[in-house]
Computed example of a mutant assay.
Amino acid sequence: MRRLPIRSLTGLAVIGLLAVTGCGTDTRTDSARDAAATGAGRTIRAQEVMRLTEVHPETGMTLLEGPTFDANGALVVVDVTAPAGKPKVLRVDVRKKTSRPLHTDDRGAYTSAQYSPYDGRIYLTDFSHGEIVSLAPDGSDPRTFFSGRVDGAPMNPDDLAFDQDGDLYISDSRGMSEGKAVGRVVRIDREGRNATVLAGGLAAPNGISFDSEYRGLWVSELTQNRVSYLLLDDRGGVASQHTAIRVDGGIAQTDSIAVDADGNLYQALHGRPAMAVYDRHGERLATVEVPARAADGLESATNVAITPGGTKAYMTVSGPAGGYLYSFDAPAEGVRQSNGG
């Protein structure tokens, strides 16, 4: 999730990575090598699919996030700043270019959505209230999965990723508004009983995604414009951690992350309606951009979901002009980690 301005957070009651390389061997796939050959100058033009939301008078914003595909191929999207009673989770039929409300409530500020491989429910991060909420696939039966302090400190859960067993890995952006590097990566077991801090001292961690082999986690740090890589051990703990990619974003900052079948990273940019695409070795492959003629009034590309088994990608883009879906052809196929967490 891109970061809300401090004034917006105050004004809303609800808004209160060692790149995996072979030893001396180029392990990239043919598609990644071909893309790298064109250099960072390659531009992928995204095309408008539809406008999903307008600016809410109550909050002065709309902010789409957390695109993720359900088992039937429908796209689920959250609107972070939707007020009470307005759709906070939407289900989108991208072929028909229609959407319908899936869930609303009177308090949640949901910044990401993911389907659990363990129980099939939708899990939402409530940034403002430090909670993880789950829904039945049809949007009914809301439950508080986790709430409370972790190691004595409250959470500001931003994005989340599931491991193959259904345990949750969460970017905790606490300290963001103060500019302090006290953010964390938190692991919560699939039953919601045990929460553990895996890494601390992070600068407003935002995007989080497993690599394509589930060996480690990519974590973007918004206020440092960098992506860290956390190599995991066989117990789900962190074996090592280092800065893997430094993102030259200019005025834009690192938002959410998705990963495709070839291990490429899709780094969303807060402050620019674009995404930077890197291979697992940190080489910039391309930049996904909204056409200049359509970019007026669009400030951020927050996240992306790539069709499972296909290359059609859907990017959430927002600004004063509204909340939009844009599509583009991704360099490789979508997998579970291609649903932006």
Rank of each mutant, 00 (worst) to 15 (best):
S31A: 07
L285T: 04
R91S: 08
A332G: 15
A292P: 08
V247K: 07
L12G: 11
I6S: 02
S99G: 14
T307F: 08
S338T: 09
Q224M: 15
D189Q: 00
P142E: 00
L265V: 02
V317A: 07
T302H: 13
E333Q: 14
E299I: 11
P331T: 03
V133T: 06
A40T: 10
A136W: 05
D159R: 03
G207A: 12
M176F: 10
L75H: 07
G130R: 00
V277M: 12
A203K: 10
I6H: 11
P117D: 02
Q241V: 14
A261R: 03
F69L: 11
A252V: 07
V186T: 01
D151K: 05
Y326R: 08
M155A: 08
D138I: 12
D165G: 05
P87K: 04
S212L: 09
V304S: 12
T68C: 04
G200A: 06
L160W: 00
D119H: 13
L64D: 05
G120S: 06
L325Y: 04
A82E: 01
L265G: 06
G183Q: 05
T27D: 15
S256Q: 08
Q267T: 13
S8I: 10
E65F: 06
G250L: 07
A113Q: 02
I122W: 03
A181Y: 01
L160P: 13
E283M: 06
N303C: 12
V259N: 02
H129L: 09
L17A: 15
A195G: 04
K88P: 11
K97F: 07
R33C: 14
R107F: 06
G310L: 13
G130Y: 00
A330S: 07
V150A: 04
Y324D: 09
S177H: 12
D255G: 11
N206M: 11
G11P: 10
P154M: 07
D26T: 10
T62E: 03
V49R: 03
R280T: 04
T29A: 13
M61W: 09
T81A: 14
D260G: 12
G201M: 04
N225S: 13
G216Q: 01
N72P: 08
A321G: 13
I188S: 05
F146V: 05
T287H: 10
L124H: 02
R187E: 00
V92A: 09
A203Q: 14
D234W: 05
A84E: 05
L231W: 09
V238W: 00
